[in-house]
Amino acid sequence: MDTDPTARTGIDEHPGTGTAPGADTETPDPFRAVESELGMLMRRSHAISRQLARTVHPDVDPSASPLLARIAKTPDVRASELAALFGVGRGTMSRQLARLDELGLIERRADPDDSRGQLIRLTELGTRRSEDVRATGRAFLRTALRSWSDEDTALLAAQLARLNLDLGVPPDLD
């Protein structure tokens, strides 16, 4: 079995439509196409994240890479802020941070403004590992998108930023 997370699925679909060639499609539903493409992107992203996480440490959860990147970007961040950003509970974040602490990737210090809180930053080892993972991830993207123009890549980045912003707003289901 092919374990390359970037390998094609073998399903002969028209990109972006989620339909097989020759299928009767009066008017393609763009939301169905977005759902299909996002689903594939998330599956591939998860597989790639697992591989990248192993470069940090063999026992690190795939969620550690973006967590380390965020801590690197915002040193002295609170666990509650990280939990809110990643959309997980405080208990989940506490367990993830405890594991990173055990591995020597983060350090905690008392929050001078709140005696109950802790501020989190990367250790020297955590900084090196985080930079290595990000460099590996960027190299992967450069290879995967090598046929894209700089303009197309910038457009993708802008559209993904817009999508992330919109997805960050909880839907009104009433």
Rank of each mutant, 00 (worst) to 15 (best):
residue 2 D to G: 03
residue 3 T to H: 13
residue 5 P to C: 12
residue 7 A to L: 15
residue 7 A to S: 14
residue 9 T to F: 02
residue 11 I to Y: 07
residue 11 I to G: 01
residue 13 E to Q: 11
residue 13 E to H: 08
residue 14 H to L: 15
residue 15 P to Q: 09
residue 16 G to Y: 06
residue 19 T to R: 14
residue 22 G to L: 14
residue 24 D to R: 12
residue 24 D to P: 06
residue 24 D to A: 15
residue 25 T to D: 14
residue 25 T to S: 13
residue 26 E to M: 08
residue 27 T to Y: 10
residue 29 D to L: 03
residue 29 D to F: 01
residue 31 F to C: 05
residue 31 F to L: 13
residue 31 F to E: 04
residue 32 R to W: 08
residue 32 R to P: 04
residue 33 A to N: 09
residue 33 A to V: 05
residue 34 V to P: 01
residue 35 E to M: 07
residue 35 E to F: 08
residue 36 S to Y: 12
residue 37 E to D: 13
residue 38 L to Y: 06
residue 38 L to Q: 08
residue 39 G to S: 14
residue 39 G to V: 04
residue 39 G to Y: 07
residue 41 L to V: 14
residue 42 M to I: 13
residue 43 R to D: 13
residue 45 S to E: 15
residue 45 S to P: 06
residue 45 S to W: 13
residue 46 H to V: 11
residue 48 I to S: 12
residue 48 I to R: 14
residue 50 R to L: 15
residue 51 Q to H: 14
residue 51 Q to F: 09
residue 52 L to A: 14
residue 53 A to H: 07
residue 54 R to L: 13
residue 55 T to S: 14
residue 57 H to C: 08
residue 58 P to R: 14
residue 60 V to G: 05
residue 61 D to H: 15
residue 63 S to T: 12
residue 64 A to V: 08
residue 65 S to P: 12
residue 65 S to Q: 12
residue 68 L to F: 11
residue 69 A to L: 14
residue 69 A to S: 15
residue 69 A to Y: 03
residue 71 I to M: 09
residue 72 A to S: 14
residue 73 K to Q: 15
residue 73 K to H: 15
residue 78 R to T: 10
residue 78 R to Y: 03
residue 80 S to M: 07
residue 85 L to G: 09
residue 85 L to R: 14
residue 86 F to N: 10
residue 86 F to G: 09
residue 86 F to R: 07
residue 91 G to T: 10
residue 92 T to V: 11
residue 93 M to T: 01
residue 95 R to T: 09
residue 97 L to Y: 01
residue 97 L to A: 02
residue 99 R to I: 01
residue 101 D to W: 01
residue 101 D to Y: 05
residue 101 D to N: 12
residue 102 E to M: 06
residue 103 L to C: 06
residue 104 G to S: 03
residue 107 E to K: 04
residue 108 R to Y: 00
residue 109 R to M: 02
residue 109 R to W: 00
residue 110 A to W: 00
residue 111 D to Q: 03
residue 111 D to A: 05
residue 112 P to H: 03
residue 114 D to K: 02
residue 117 G to V: 02
residue 118 Q to S: 07
residue 119 L to Q: 01
residue 119 L to P: 01
residue 122 L to I: 03
residue 124 E to M: 05
residue 125 L to Q: 06
residue 126 G to R: 03
residue 126 G to W: 05
residue 126 G to L: 06
residue 128 R to T: 04
residue 128 R to K: 07
residue 129 R to Q: 05
residue 130 S to N: 02
residue 132 D to N: 04
residue 136 T to N: 01
residue 137 G to P: 03
residue 144 A to K: 03
residue 144 A to L: 11
residue 145 L to N: 04
residue 147 S to N: 07
residue 147 S to P: 05
residue 148 W to S: 11
residue 150 D to G: 08
residue 151 E to N: 10
residue 154 A to C: 02
residue 155 L to A: 09
residue 156 L to W: 01
residue 157 A to W: 00
residue 157 A to M: 05
residue 160 L to I: 09
residue 162 R to A: 05
residue 163 L to V: 02
residue 165 L to K: 03
residue 166 D to P: 00
residue 168 G to C: 00
residue 168 G to A: 11
residue 168 G to S: 11
residue 169 V to M: 04
residue 169 V to I: 07
residue 170 P to K: 02
residue 170 P to S: 00
residue 172 D to T: 09
residue 173 L to V: 06
